[in-house]
């Protein structure tokens, strides 16, 4: 293992298929420790597929994926998670039949380097609204509360990277702002993030790097500020 561990995630030439449809056509993606990367593109361009492939959920895949220099090209989802990757999925993935408290503590585990600072109490401190809802079932929460629970649950696994897929989807503007504040806090705390969101301006404002997908290919990539000023951007996003 002479591989440098400067990069938390290195993915090269990622292909993915759903059945016979070829969705990703060779995408490269690198995320350094503590870096925030924005993933942009119109609907159906392969953002969620790329995320699910990196996480090991898409089994028809090709290419090389490594976390901390360790090859995870063929890793199963729980092995990827144990490399320090947490997932806040589209639709939030809150367990409807578990209470808020159970949703949080079932996930708790120390991080890769034994980090243990996101205790149950600290997560509730960060998301005070959950404190009032501890005994409610996951499906009794509002969308915003579910999103906070999903992010809180991700933090309970002490990740080095959090992948957020459409974290603000369907939420009221005030809650959306609150979620972006949380994302900023996470970035501040040194945890790397990979963000997919419809609001590309906010994504670019919160990211170090950005990547724009079109038809399963990475059409534009680079520092977020450069991507934001690139004349091709609006065309790629169809705005």
């Amino acid at each position: 293992m002479a591989k440098s561990v400067e990069y938390l995630l290195e993915a090269e030439g990622i292909h993915a298929w759903y059945g016979s449809s070829h969705v990703l056509h060779g995408i490269d993606l690198r995320i350094a420790r503590g870096q925030t990367v924005g993933l942009l593109g119109r609907n159906g361009m392969g953002k969620s597929t790329l995320i699910r492939t990196l996480l090991g959920h898409v089994t028809q895949r090709d290419g090389r994926i490594s976390f901390f220099g360790e090859d995870c090209s063929h890793a199963r989802p729980h092995q990827v998670a144990r490399m320090g990757v947490a997932y806040v999925p589209e639709g939030r993935g809150v367990f409807p039949n578990l209470t808020v408290r159970e949703n949080l503590i079932m996930a708790a585990r120390p991080g890769r380097d034994g980090q243990n600072d996101w205790s149950y109490e600290r997560v509730l401190d960060r998301f005070p609204r959950l404190t009032e809802r501890l005994t409610n079932m996951g499906n009794q929460l509002s969308g915003g509360e579910q999103q906070m629970l999903s992010i809180g649950r991700a933090l309970m696994t002490h990740p080095d990277l959090i992948i957020l897929d459409e974290a603000t989807e369907g939420l009221a503007p005030l809650i959306v702002t609150e979620i972006w504040n949380v994302i900023a806090d996470i970035r501040e705390s040194g945890i790397a993030t990979l963000i997919v969101d419809r609001d590309f301006r906010r994504v670019l404002a919160h990211s170090d790097h950005a990547l724009v997908l079109q038809k399963g290919l990475s059409e534009l990539a680079g520092p977020a500020a450069d991507v934001a000023n690139d004349p091709a951007l609006t065309g790629l996003l169809g705005v």
């Binding site: 090991g56 989802p77 729980h78 999925p89 367990f95 585990r109």
Partner: peptide, 17 residues
Amino acid sequence: MMIRAGASNREMVQSLG
């Protein structure tokens, strides 16, 4: 809790390690 969670969302359980 893991067993109950597994009954409702298999993929999410895996992504929690």
